[in-house]
Amino acid sequence: MTSSVQKKRARKKNITYMLFLLPGLVYLVINNYIPMMGVFIAFKNIDYAKGIFKSDWIGLQNFRFLFKTRDALIMTRNTLLYNLVFIVAGTVFAIFVAILLCELGEKLSARIFQSALILPYLLSWVIISYIVFAFLSSDTGYLNKAVLEPAGKSFVNWYGEPFYWIFILIFVFLWKSTGYQSIVYMANIAGIDSSIKEAARIDGANKLQEIRYVVLPLLKPTVVVMTLMAIGRIFYSDFGLFFQVPMDSGALYPVTQTVDTYVYRGLMKLNDIGMASAAGLYQSVVGFVLVLLSNLAVKRADPDNALF
């Protein structure tokens, strides 16, 4: 008797919960799920006169161009390694900055610093590429003209030296995104019950210990979620960072070629939506598999923090 009442109540609660979900569900179905059916384009040879629905099926042919090239290894390596560095360094810097900002609290200086740190995020990649160019241009750049030249050093052809760009790209990425990412962690740190910190302090913890034993553990769930989401996109790269910032300089391809730039460079000319679609599907599937695996690992270790 009681169990059926409980069941009924549980069902009613589930229905109420569904009402919360309803508006979002409608949107996701229209905006994401129905258009997702469009992946079939990846398996078609698009013929505009026939329309996308009636074009011929060609199996996996659209995928060939991704693998049948000596660039396949380079672009896969670059995409994965950069993303790994971005995930690790990005998280470390963002948390570091968030802790420092919270330390300064509500002071005017904290607000000014935070504004300054988020400023780069407000710029589009096109603009950032101009900024980078202003520093690195061989003939007019600040580094060559105002730093190396007065110091009596010979100029560096920055856009022709792949080696430097491994660091330049990482720096630019951190420069743009650290302030922005730190906001996520700041909200979490600010949300930490101040009584917990107080208790730690009374127990004699110093600042570093407080961070180590109170703040970081509380940030763990957020870090896990952010990382899992990043892993889902690990086969994607920020097109602006890898294409526009290096000014599409050919000499830099060994360190700037990623899946997205390769697809863009190849398809700009061919304008083939079938092949573009195939590349997107490939990136999604790899990300999907990786994220399922890592979620599984998280679930094993710490079920509360798993993404789903």
Binding site: K68, R70, A251, Y253, K269, L270
Partner: peptide, 24 residues
């Protein structure tokens, strides 16, 4: 030769500007 076109375009982008303007 779609596939080859993509690959060749990339190679050309990589080398041609530097060769043509003498920087490599």
């Amino acid at each position: 030769v779609k596939t080859e076109y993509t690959a060749v375009t990339n190679v050309i982008n990589q080398y041609l500007p530097g060769l043509v303007w003498g920087s490599i």
